[in-house]
Amino acid sequence: MTRNRPVPSLPPADLAFVRGLVLHEDNSLIAFNKPSGLAVQAGSGIARSLDDLMAAFAKSNGKRPRLVHRLDQGTSGVIVAAKTQPVAAKLSEAFAGRDVQKTYLALVKGRLPDADEGVIDAPLAKVEESGKARMIVAKPDRKGAQAARTGWRVRARNGAFALMELAPETGRMHQIRVHLMSLGCPILGDALYGEGQATAPRLMLHAARLDLPHPEGKRLVLESPLPEDFRQLATSVGLQAGL
Rank of each mutant, 00 (worst) to 15 (best):
63 K>F: 08
79 I>G: 00
125 A>V: 14
18 V>P: 00
234 A>V: 06
175 Q>K: 14
46 I>N: 04
238 G>W: 10
219 R>G: 09
219 R>T: 14
184 G>M: 14
104 Y>C: 02
188 L>D: 11
16 A>D: 15
61 N>P: 10
19 R>V: 00
67 L>P: 04
18 V>S: 01
87 V>Y: 01
19 R>L: 02
45 G>H: 10
127 V>Q: 13
95 F>L: 11
16 A>Y: 01
174 H>A: 07
44 S>W: 00
9 S>Y: 02
39 A>L: 12
33 N>F: 00
212 L>P: 02
170 T>V: 06
163 L>A: 00
11 P>K: 14
203 L>R: 08
1 M>H: 12
170 T>R: 00
238 G>C: 11
19 R>T: 04
196 G>K: 09
215 P>D: 13
189 G>Q: 09
73 Q>R: 15
3 R>W: 13
95 F>G: 05
171 G>S: 06
49 S>I: 00
96 A>H: 10
12 P>W: 11
4 N>K: 01
76 S>I: 05
132 K>M: 12
221 V>K: 03
103 T>Q: 14
66 R>H: 13
170 T>P: 06
194 G>I: 03
57 F>I: 08
233 L>H: 06
4 N>L: 11
108 V>T: 14
3 R>S: 03
213 P>F: 10
5 R>S: 08
64 R>D: 07
36 S>N: 09
75 T>F: 08
91 L>I: 12
157 R>M: 02
37 G>L: 09
112 L>F: 05
143 K>T: 12
44 S>P: 01
33 N>G: 04
153 R>T: 14
239 L>F: 12
75 T>H: 02
65 P>A: 02
179 H>D: 10
213 P>Q: 13
